[in-house]
Each structure stands twice: as C-alpha cells, then as structure tokens.
Amino acid sequence: MNEISIPTRQRPPLVILACLSVLLIVSLVFGQWPDYAQLTATLDQPLSRLRWIVGDISEVAFYKHELPALGLLLGACLAHWAGLRGYRWQGFAICYGTGLWPWVFTSSLLGLLLSHVLWGWTLAGGGWQPTFVAFVSLPAAMVLLFGGGWQVTITGALLGALLVTPASLLLVNYLCIPLQLPVVIGNVGGMAVASVVAFLLCKRFPSWVQQGKRPAGLQPVTRQPDYGVVWTLRRVLADFSEAPFFGNELASLGLLLGLLLACVIAPAAPAYGSQLVVQMVAGQALASLVGVLVWRRQWQARGWYPTYIPIVSIVPAAVLMHGGDWQVVVTSAVLGALVAPPLAVAISGRLPSYMHGYIGNVLSMAFSTLAIVPLVGLIGGAA
C-alpha cells in the first residue's frame, strides 16, 4: 500500500468537524426515525427534508439514510485525522493519499446543497429523485484532478449543481422511468454526460481551475502490499466507500455500522424501505471479493482497479428490481465483478488527459447495468 507522510500540524477544516457534529446532534435529538414511506410523504416538513438531504450522502450505495451517511463521514474524518499523523491503522490512505479529503468533502457537500437549492422542487410530489448525484461525481473529481483551494472547490460545486443534477434528472424521468430501466443508468449517465461538458468548459476556460493547490510537503512512503488474505479483506471493505472517492476502510466501516444501526431502529427506513439490506450488502461484498480476486494482477500492476463498480450499480439495482433470491444476488455479483471493471478501464484509458478517469467508471456502470440486470432477471426467473 502506498502511504504518505503529512505534517501533523495540519487539521481538517473546522467547518467539516462542525458539520459532522451538527448532523450527529440532530440525528440523536430527533431519534424517532420514520420509515421510507413516511419520509417521502412528509418531505414538505423541514426535518424530513433535512433527513433526505443527509441521506443523499449514503445514496450512492443505495442505502439512503442519515445514519450510514453520518457513519461514512465520521469514519472518513477519523481516517483523515489518522493519516495526518501517519498512523498505520488509517488503512488505505483516504482520497488515494492526495491529502485533499477536506476539499473533496467540502466541494461535494456544497454541490449537494446547491443542488437542493436549485432542484429541490422536484421532490414536491413526494417521489424519489436523484438529488444525490453531485455529492459523488464532478465536484470531487475536479478537486482530485486540479487540486484543492476555494476556486476549484466552488467551481466544482457550481458545475455539479448546474450540470450533473439536471442531467440525471432528465435521464431518470424521461428515459429510465418511461422505458422501465434501472434508474441507476440515468444517475450515472447524467454524471458522465455532465462531467464531459464540465471538463470541456474547464479546458476552454482554464482560469476557473488554474489555482488549484495540493498539500505541500507530502512525501510518499512506499510499502509494498503482499496482496494476501488480510489485504484482500481490507480492499473489499474499502470498496464500499470508493464511490465518493474515499476508498478507505474506516469510512466504509462507519457506513456499514450506520446502516446496521438504521436497520435495527427502523428496518423499513434504509434502502428505500425494501427490507433487502442483508441481501444487498451480501451481494455487494461478494462482487468486490470476486473482483479483487479475479483482477488481483491488475491491482498489483496498476496500484488501483475499479472493483467497486458493481457495489454501487449492478448488484443493488438487480436486487431491488428482481428480489433478494440467492440466484439474483450471486449472479449479479459475479457478472458485475467480471464485466464492469475491465470495461471501465478500457473507457477511461481512451479519455483525454484533462478529463478525470471516473467518467469511464460511471459509463461502465451504465452499460454494465443495462446489459446485466435484465440477464439476471432471466436467469433468476429460470432458476
């Protein structure tokens, strides 16, 4: 694993810690959690709308609940803090060891909040809408590609709210729903199309992002992983937080512990009230495990490989559409692990240098989901 040494005097911005503290306090004070149907029926109420917005942070994993969202953020904050001090138990260095996690989180959160300001009216009917997409797409990708600082952070947040969210809204409502396609195709399709447009704009107007900065004084410390059993299990866990660009075991652990607590408190609240959380998580873990094992040589050669893709697309989409039978869980996990990662790498390798490679990942999610989820239904129906 590649780790970095970061001066211990650095601290996560106080605004991040304040946001986490406020979210946790609100969650604890208002501890009577509604189920998903109650939440969507009361979105005109401030507390329900706040819960929806916070739940957007864990939506990319299909959990949609404030407790896994809070767990994800608290785990990520702990991982960043541990990384500043060089503790080995930090796990895989968050945000790929760039030291940019505070800026990634800030840009993503601003993009999410701006999206709700601009597009929150689409929730007026009480139906689901992809309001979460800006949190796990362009804002973070721009920070990782161009560096930190307020100019890049705000530019990414603005473009995420102005381009990504409406693109996904259009694809979901005017393509996926009429054609009865998994809505994840519209979610990630909107991310891809809008991000291409955004990076073309940044190339045309480089002053928008030319002042990006990276933490000074970072010295890579190379520690060759053995890619053994422990590394494999750590990698599977880290894949659960890869979609928001965290890729860290502590962040993933917080996400999953928050999901467990949400299921205990209100079983019909997370995962859209489907009560398929166990099957979903089992399929997600199996997909990552199969991917990490099958593509181990790629991990060794490249240092990183997108084995997380089925976790946030194919597997949960198949489970929600076709049910939680073991045939659905296993088939979607295995096919997703075999097909989606190499497709993503093939697409990303053909992108120009001024575009972040995550575009290939989300396009792979769209194409793989479109091909595999119907096939899973056929196999599950014939079994």
Rank of each mutant, 00 (worst) to 15 (best):
P7N: 13
P12I: 02
P13R: 13
C19E: 09
S21P: 08
L24P: 03
S27I: 10
P34K: 04
T42M: 12
D44H: 14
D44A: 13
D44C: 06
P46T: 04
L50G: 07
W52T: 11
G55N: 06
I57V: 13
V60R: 06
A61S: 15
G83P: 07
Y87N: 15
Y96Q: 13
G99I: 01
L109Y: 00
G111N: 04
L123W: 09
A124N: 14
S137F: 02
P139A: 04
A140L: 00
L144W: 00
L145V: 07
G156I: 03
A161H: 01
L163C: 06
S168V: 03
I177T: 15
G186W: 00
V196T: 11
R204N: 11
V209S: 04
V209N: 00
G212M: 05
P215F: 03
P225Q: 03
D226K: 12
W231T: 10
E242V: 00
S252D: 04
L256M: 09
A271L: 14
G273M: 04
L276F: 11
V281C: 03
A287M: 00
V290P: 01
W295P: 01
W304M: 10
Y308M: 07
I309Q: 08
I309R: 02
S313A: 13
V315M: 04
H322Y: 12
H322Q: 13
S332C: 06
A344N: 04
G357I: 10
I359A: 12
G360F: 09
L363Y: 01
S368C: 09
A371T: 09
